[in-house]
């Protein structure tokens, strides 16, 4: 049996697990699934907007990773490699649902929306407290779902899941400047849209 190092630096323990899994240690792969299943599920939900699809993506992504583990060279982190597989699976699901429209990461990214801020009112001191937890969740979901896939995916990987700009670029097969410009637009569009709910003018009456 391979021994798995515990409580080491996450990159080292990830590498140890990957090496063991490559040699056929299923328990090591099971640990990798437990490390990243929540992240993969969140990313898949953000892209597909559908819980069933997201569950399928989690299964397919890990199975593909397992099947192709020998091809993983270790030049990047296992997580970055896994995210790339998951993003592709999720985009495929999205394409199936929207048969009339092709879906790609380049879709709608030419939009001018959010390029120049129109709303410059400040927000309430504690915008999150204007709404209950469920209502806030609905606002955040609706707002991010309105973004084109190419923007929201970059935002989710970079700002929600905390990948670096370089890792985001690698996961999506985009250049670093492309990630940066999409991230800026995604952040500005979200800001503009959330402003409708969080402007300080609204703090008196709570919801509209």
């Amino acid at each position: 049996m391979e021994t798995i190092q515990k409580k080491t630096d996450p990159d080292t323990s990830e590498m140890v697990l990957v090496q063991a899994a490559k040699k056929g240690d299923l328990e090591a792969f099971s640990q990798l699934v437990k490390l990243y299943d929540r992240n993969v599920f969140r990313i898949a939900q953000h892209i597909t907007h559908n819980e069933e699809d997201a569950q399928d993506v989690v299964q397919e992504a890990f199975l593909k990773a397992y099947t192709n583990l020998e091809q993983f060279q270790g030049n990047s982190k296992f997580y970055t490699w896994l995210v790339r597989i998951a993003v592709n699976e999720a985009l495929m699901k999205l394409r199936k649902r929207r048969t009339s429209k092709t879906v790609s990461l380049d879709e709608d990214v030419e939009t001018e929306e959010g390029a120049m801020p129109r709303e410059v009112a400040d927000w309430s001191p504690n915008p999150e407290q204007l709404y209950g937890q469920t209502e806030l969740g609905d606002i955040l979901k609706k707002t991010i779902q309105g973004l084109p896939p190419g923007f929201r995916t970059v935002f989710v990987l970079r700002d929600v899941e905390g990948l670096s700009t370089e890792e985001t670029a690698e996961s999506l097969g985009l250049s670093v400047p492309a990630v940066k410009s999409r991230l800026l637009r995604a952040r500005l569009q979200l800001r503009e849209r959330l402003g409708k709910f969080f402007n300080s003018r609204k703090s008196g009456d709570g919801k509209q």
Binding site: R38, F41, R42, H46, D122, L136, L140, V160, L190, L194
Partner: peptide, 27 residues
């Protein structure tokens, strides 16, 4: 400031958590 808050709100309020029962089934 509001862009910074936008990022923080999304980071602090994970809107899609994997329910534990579903997580076990998937695993």
């Amino acid at each position: 400031n509001t862009t910074k808050q936008t990022i923080e709100i999304y980071r602090d309020n994970q809107i899609y958590e994997l329910p534990e029962r579903l997580r076990i089934q998937l695993h």
